[in-house]
Structure formats: structure tokens, C-alpha cells
């Protein structure tokens, strides 16, 4: 069955890419359409996520190497990054703090539990960091992974569209924004928008993870 799940996942992904090419729209972003279609198919076939997990483990084997590979666009655009290091660092740090604070405040405004509020704080960063950071401030690691996925898909789907609506056309600032709030999944979309966006988004994803893990233990009690 694992083999069938893998073939199915690849087929759905390739079709979603074709769909996105034919009908370019935020709503046809492959990571969004593929995930939605696969969830529906698995639910209809009465397959649990546990049954799908061996296939997942095999398919995600290259996620680590693929993230390492982001060093290549980073290298090609290193001069731009060096040149704009200070504005980028300021934007990234203030942006990270604002996304953490607003997530916690919105969660608390809805009267969500303390665990969910703590987990909300980590939703913008890449999964391994989110899981560890969530535990430190009293959040739930599994839920953190889920929030990270939704935030990533949201950023990939609406990030480019929102930036255009906000009148931000500079490729550097666009990449930085996407990488800071939607980590690898946003970056996977930024890479497709352009080489500068991809490179800056990769760097932003890394730095946002580092900033969050250092800042969160003292910043979270302040905003709670």
C-alpha cells in the first residue's frame, strides 16, 4: 500500500502543478491543492494518517537535503544580501516579534486555551524549531506542527497576492516577508516567483527560526 500512496501523492502533485500553470491563482498553489485533494482522497478511502505515515517518511527523506540546497540561490544572491543586511535584519526582527505577539493576542481574544496560545506563538517558523520552542513555553508539539503547516500554506497561497495588494514590489522585501512568516512552504513558492525572492526567503526562514528560538522564552511571558 505504501507504494500506492507514494504514486498517488506524486500524481496529485504533478497534476496540481499543471493546474497551477494553466490557471495561475493563489487558490491553485500546488501545496494547497495537493494537500486538500490528498486529505479528501484518504478520508474517502478510509485511510488513517498512521497508515499513510510510512509513505510520508519515504517521501520526506529529501526534505533536509532540499533545504540544504537553498544555499545555492543564497550564494548567487549573496551580494544583495550583504548590501541590505541592516534593513533586512531590522525588518525580520520587528516582523517576527509582531507576528508572535499578534498570534498570541488573537488566540487569547478568542478565549482559546493557554496551550493553544503558547502554540500560536511558534506558528511562523520551520517545524523542528517550532516543535522545540513550543515545548519550552508550554505549547503542544504536535499542534505546533499543524499550525506551522497552515501558516506555511497560507503564506504560499496568499503571501505574493497580499504583498502586491500592500504595494510592495521590491523582490528583496517580498522574499524577506514570505520567508519570515511562512518558512519553507512560503519559500517553496518564493523560489518560483524569482531567484532573488527565493534566496532572500531562504535566508529569512533560517534567521526567523534562530531569532524565534532565542527570543521566545523571554518574549512570550511579556505578551501573555
Amino acid at each position: 500500500m505504501t507504494f500506492i500512496y507514494i504514486v498517488l501523492t506524486i500524481a496529485v502533485y504533478l497534476s496540481s502543478r499543471m493546474l497551477a500553470r494553466r490557471f495561475p491563482s493563489p487558490f491553485t498553489t500546488p501545496v494547497f491543492t495537493s494537500t486538500a485533494v490528498l486529505i479528501v482522497l484518504l478520508l474517502l478511502a478510509d485511510v488513517s494518517y498512521e497508515q499513510y505515515t510510512p509513505a510520508k517518511d519515504m517521501m520526506t527523506f529529501l526534505l533536509g537535503p532540499a533545504t540544504v540546497a537553498l544555499a545555492v540561490p543564497l550564494y548567487h544572491n549573496r551580494d544583495v544580501l550583504r548590501d541590505r543586511l541592516i534593513p533586512a535584519a531590522a525588518g525580520l526582527i520587528v516582523g517576527t516579534l509582531s507576528t508572535i505577539a499578534s498570534a498570541v493576542w488573537i488566540a487569547s481574544a478568542f478565549g482559546l486555551s493557554d496551550t493553544i496560545q503558547a502554540t500560536s506563538a511558534v506558528k511562523a517558523v520551520t517545524t523542528p524549531v517550532a516543535i522545540e520552542a513550543a515545548v519550552i513555553i508550554g505549547g503542544d508539539p504536535a499542534l505546533a506542527a499543524a499550525f506551522v503547516m497552515v501558516a506555511g500554506i497560507f503564506g504560499a497561497v496568499f503571501g505574493p497576492f497580499l504583498l502586491t495588494a500592500m504595494n510592495i514590489t521590491d523582490p528583496f522585501s517580498r522574499g524577506l516577508g514570505i520567508g519570515t512568516v511562512s518558512h519553507g512552504i512560503g519559500t517553496s513558492q518564493a523560489v518560483l516567483e524569482g531567484p532573488v525572492q527565493g534566496a532572500v526567503s531562504s535566508a529569512a526562514m533560517g534567521f526567523a527560526a534562530i531569532v524565534t528560538s532565542f527570543v521566545l522564552p523571554w518574549f512570550f511571558p511579556l505578551i501573555q
Binding site: T9, I10, V12, Y13, P30, V31, S34, T35, L38, I39, L42, Y49, Y52, A55, K56, M59, T60, L62, L63, P65, A66, T67, A69, L70, V72, P73, T127, A145, A146, M149, V150, G152, I153, A156, G184, I185, T187, S188, Q189, V191, L192, G198
Partner: peptide, 16 residues
């Protein structure tokens, strides 16, 4: 790998 980076996140996102 960069071109298909999104693919590697799909099986994880299915966890939702």
C-alpha cells in the same frame, strides 16, 4: 530540489 521543494511538504501537511 528547489523547484520541487513544495512536494516534500505535502505528505507532512496531509497530517492536518
Amino acid at each position: 530540489l528547489n523547484k520541487h521543494l513544495a512536494f516534500f511538504f505535502i505528505p507532512i501537511a496531509v497530517g492536518l
